[in-house]
Design a protein around this nucleic acid. Sequence first.
DNA 1: GTGCCTCGGGG
DNA 2: GTGTACGAGGCAC
Length: 818
Amino acid sequence: MAEKIRFFPMDVIYKIIDDKPVIHLFGKTIDNKQVCVLYDKFEPYLYVIPKPGTAIADELRNLKITRSETEFSITKVEAVKKIYLGKDVDALKVYTKFPSEIPVIREELKNNPNIESINESDILFVRRFLIDNNITPLTLHEVEGNFTNKKLRVPAFQAEKIEPFGTETLVKPKILSVDIETYTPGNKEIEPEKNPILMIAFYAEDFHKVIVWKRFNTNLEYAEFAESESELLEKFKEVIETYKPDILTGYFSDGFDLPYIKSRAEKYKIKLDLGLDYSELRIKKLQVVTAQIIGITHLDIFKFIRKVISGTLETDTYNLNAVASELLDEKKFDVDLSELSKAWENQEEFDKYCEYNLNDAKLSYKLAEKLMPTISEIVKITGLTIYDANRMGFSQLVEWYLLKQAANFNQIAPNKPNNNEVMERRMKTYKGAFVFEPKPGLYENIVVFDYRSLYPTIIGSHNIGPGTINCSCCKEDAKLAPMEDNSKVWFCSKKKGFIPSIIEDLITRRTRIKEITRDHSDEEHAILDARQNSLKLLANSFYGYLGFFGARWYSFECARATTAFGRYYITKVIGKAEKDGFKVQYSDTDSVFLTLDGKTKEDATKFSEKINSELPGLMELEFEGFYPAGIFVSAKMGAFGAKKKYALLSEDGFLKIKGFESVRRNWSLIAKEAQEKVLDIILRDRDNKKALEYVKKVVDDLRNKKIHLDKVIIHTQLQKELNDYDARGPHVAVAQRLKNKGVNVGPGTMIRFVVVQGSDIIRNRSKLPEEVKENEYDADYYINHQVVPAVERIFDVLGYHKLDLLESKEQKKLEGFF
DNA sequence: GTGCCTCGGGG
DNA sequence: GTGTACGAGGCAC
């Protein structure tokens, strides 16, 4: 009698058992128990597209290949009707017994003159299985079959049938976070062959532990001792075996913790057979190192953050401290790691290192917990396992989403480019977005409009994709894309293409979620927000994907047409706005800034309604906001190119500042304050004189040392190791002195310093705030290198000169000489 | 510019 | 494992 169970798949592998490939789906049952579902009825295949007018099915059926005394053969050939890049094709689905036979068959058929192309021969067996059976990790499935005995750490269930069951998602996977500290004498290189692991911290919701292999006096209840490093490693194994996490996480655990543990275990000949199938922790060294445990999802939260989240973060270094500060508002403990090795030898002050170790594990745990909704959504959209999604960038995520959808849309996927194609693709460039530079100045009554998801909606509305470009069915009466070189590019107007359909689906799903989000509680809100955000990230990646050299659905002309349409639509708004009597002040890619110029807000609303009534499909010009006042500042054309610099005052009194240095951290507080205050006075009080007087006051206060020391501290983050700096700026010099004092400094360390009076070069006058007395700072430095540069360009716009700022009441005459 | 190499993260 | 990988920045030429 067959039984039914319901479970959430998490990790998938296959093994050859009894001369058959057997899919193993590790996951969690509905009553929260680990399980492994086995399925042995899925067969490997590839697609062959024969040349028109040829018949090779029988030839294939009889094909026998012998390689190193093994015979490979095709088990089955099915004729299938498919769509390949927009064209209907009669393809052959060619099956083999084992997945490993697929590449052999492909190589054998590669040069067959009757074959147009061989496709989908490089899609991994388990991914093929998930796609073809519509199985999405982390969502509920019903399985029919029976429990069976297998040499696994979890119960095995032999399945006859596996089907998705509703929309339920695994809510709370058991996450265990790991972090190690190692012996690194002299703060030198990390050498796993030489140096032992000293301690390992674990952190989970209901479980905190630090294991150390030297005894010391402590009251820490979570500290546990091992007698040796090898015992420490055995205990590491034990913790994972008994805690049974669904997800093992760490910060850069792919590249550091797990490989280090593996290499120490090898030294002691300890088998790390943690896999739920008793397989060993696997470290794969390709271009990047990865660590995998079968059945337990290894989530390297650092990798996910760098690849997927980084674009939405302020920080530009992705070390644990910086990321935890921004996402969790928590920091690493301030512990000098270079002292760890000494403390280890002397067995002293060990509590703080244990606390440090546990805290790091806790931070990674919290990051994993916080990002779970986003990870989970990406998994549900793409159908990849967490493990796979964790290690992919956006172009790969888009591609796997397309591969999953291709099956639903009866498409055969294009192949990846070979080396030559990649090289050719890399060479090609094309024209990007339209930018209308603002004239520096102060403006009133600014209306901002922007196109919602401009590129995704263009792709959808204009049916842009490699399957619809320059179709023969529309050739005669084609509506051409507005290419800058007038080249003839059009997209099918009779049939919706694969990529445009997919992207419109993403956009409408996101819109629907956004609509219902506000009716939900906080927790549900966070999940829905993660969903809509993941959908947005993915939709926004399509345009880049079309122009990405490694893409299967690459199309240079499609990417080029997308920006061409983008320029067309934004310049259309500009043209119409001008015709209607608005004044266009600024525009970039998908947004326009207009001044009313005597017209009313209602006129502006009507204007956008008119535009919208003429826009195709999902395209929409959104009213972003109305601003009573705003200032555009001329941007320096420096090494970074033209920067967009403006500040707007909203109707409800908020300042919106873009591109000003005040958002950067390596400015003293006094400079930031001065800049914000000046913008505030100019936009809110509309009193330029008052702003000028304010700056003069700050300048005077600095001269008279009335500004507090705290406000002149400059924060700069070290980007690399001290020895790697050629240009030894002030922060590097200060860091060097810190290091000489025995403080551990390195990339990511925030250096605080104050410039003091004197005639020496700046670097030698940069001191730690603690070393400086209240009135020792160099007023002239802060005036000329901080405050004045911060506001100078704003006053330029108002017609004042730099000298006007410096002219203090007491020193008017003196300054005049400069 | 082009090509090659290193590094990020971790201790 | 039906497989393939990044991207930025510095330096020499």
